[in-house]
Computed example of a mutant assay.
Amino acid sequence: MSGPDAPLSRQVRGGWRDGHCVVAPDKFKGSLTAPQVAAHLATGLRRVRPDIPVVTMPVADGGDGTVDAVVESGFVRFQTSAAGPLGLPVAASFAMRGEAAVIELAEASGLRRLPVRPTCQTAMTATSYGTGELIRAAATRGARSVVLGLGGSACTDGGVGMMSALGVRFLDEHGLELPRGGAALTRLARIDASEMLQVPVIVASDVDNPLFGPRGAAQVYGPQKGARPGDIDELEWGLARLASIVERDLGADVADRPGAGAAGGVGYAALAFLGATVRPGIEIILELMSFAEQIEGARLVITGEGSLDSQTLHGKAPVGVAQAAAGVSVPVVAVAGQRSLTDEQLRRAHIEHAYALTDLEPDPEVCMAQAGPLLERLAGEIAGAWLGASAHA
């Protein structure tokens, strides 16, 4: 038996009474960043149990917010200018600790960096070039390995933009370099990788799609980037052409590898050109944050994200946090804007209970606007149910 009704004797013998509480949520997309969510939860906990140490460890799964999360855990943020998805310069950042760098594709090449709403034009011309510039900038600062978080990309260029920034030349039949964007890949004739900057890369992604085909980058993710049916066919053809030329010129046959279709094929480029490995994003981020050490002796872990739904069960941050905590027998509860997972689904994911903002406020728009105060109220409920009455109350 566990949770609010667990016998006090077990709590004492298990060390919960004198342990700390770890707050490790992901972002509430469209409302609060992961550090903001963690800060509001910590505030609510401290109001009810000021005597219990609270450790905030905002997390991410490789997508938006990954750099913010590792900076909170001790990495140093570096700001630079990089090409946005349409080639216009944007202010982007990456993080480093020692010789390890963390780069988030969405920082330079994400949908949120488009200066306009996604259209068929942006879908065909968006580039990952800026992501390659961030990798080069990190290498210039001494990075010897890169964790590359993939998610939220605006491009379907097979990672050609990224590799162009790293010195690879993609040429048409006349020996001219291709313009940026996925549409140009149909004209690819030859690849020259003789001047490529080689940097060891680990891809942080929970996407297992291949490069092309029914589950590929263009067909599955193209529509959300603005591509119409005819555009998707052209992008598909370009990605297949890229895979064929890469296999001929570089001897790399990785188009069907799980994760090759991540971020419009940036995963493929990392695999084919940089020899990258692909791992679940949350797993890598928790390692970088020394999460296992931080939860030793904890009495409770609080995780969460904007929506606890079926997608949560497929490699998202709350499940990764819960699995890590289960390894050292620390109970986990989750918070969310809304939840659709059943109690049984939560238990199978090692989450003992979930609290949603919609439990307090049924209007989703109000929940979005008032997420911070509502999270503090939920944290107070969690403190009362899971941490008991304060000796200082």
Score class of each variant (00 low, 15 high):
Met1Trp: 09
Ser2Cys: 04
Gly3Pro: 02
Gly3Leu: 12
Pro4Cys: 06
Pro4Gln: 12
Asp5Trp: 12
Asp18Pro: 08
Gly19Leu: 07
Ala24Phe: 06
Lys27Ser: 12
Gly30His: 01
Ala34Arg: 11
His40Trp: 10
Ala42Asp: 07
Arg46Phe: 13
Val55Phe: 13
Val55Ser: 11
Ala60Gly: 02
Asp68Gln: 07
Val70Gln: 05
Glu72Arg: 13
Gly84Glu: 14
Leu88Met: 09
Pro89Phe: 03
Ala95Leu: 11
Ala100Gly: 03
Ile103Gln: 00
Ser109Glu: 02
Arg112Pro: 02
Pro115Glu: 10
Ala126Trp: 04
Glu133Met: 02
Ala138Phe: 04
Thr140His: 12
Thr140Ile: 13
Gly142Tyr: 10
Arg144Tyr: 03
Ser145Asn: 05
Val147Arg: 01
Leu148Val: 09
Ala154Gly: 05
Asp157Tyr: 07
Met162Phe: 09
Leu166Thr: 04
Val168Trp: 00
Leu171Tyr: 06
Asp172Lys: 06
Leu178Tyr: 00
Pro179Gly: 03
Gly181Thr: 09
Gly182Lys: 04
Leu185Trp: 07
Arg190Gly: 02
Asp192Glu: 09
Leu197Asp: 04
Leu197Arg: 01
Gln198Ser: 15
Val199Glu: 07
Pro200Arg: 04
Val203Tyr: 02
Ala204Glu: 09
Asp206Leu: 05
Val207Phe: 00
Leu211Asp: 02
Pro214Leu: 11
Gly216Glu: 14
Val220Gln: 14
Pro223Ser: 07
Arg228Met: 15
Asp233Gly: 10
Leu239Pro: 00
Glu247His: 14
Asp249Val: 04
Asp256Arg: 11
Gly264Tyr: 08
Gly265Arg: 05
Gly267Ala: 10
Ala269Glu: 15
Ala272Phe: 07
Phe273Gly: 11
Phe273Met: 05
Thr277Leu: 07
Ile282Met: 04
Ile285Val: 14
Leu288Glu: 13
Glu296Lys: 15
Ala298Thr: 03
Leu300Glu: 09
Gln311Ala: 14
Ala317His: 06
Val321Glu: 03
Ala324Tyr: 10
Ala326Tyr: 08
Gly327Trp: 07
Val332Asp: 01
Val333Thr: 03
Val335Pro: 00
Arg339Phe: 01
Arg339Ser: 15
Ser340Gly: 01
Gln345Ser: 09
His353Ile: 00
Pro364Trp: 03
Ala369Lys: 13
Gly372His: 04
Gly372Tyr: 02
Pro373Phe: 00
Leu375Thr: 00
Arg377Phe: 03
Gly384Asn: 15
Gly384Gln: 15
Gly384Met: 15
Ala385Glu: 15
Ala391Gln: 12
Ala393Cys: 13
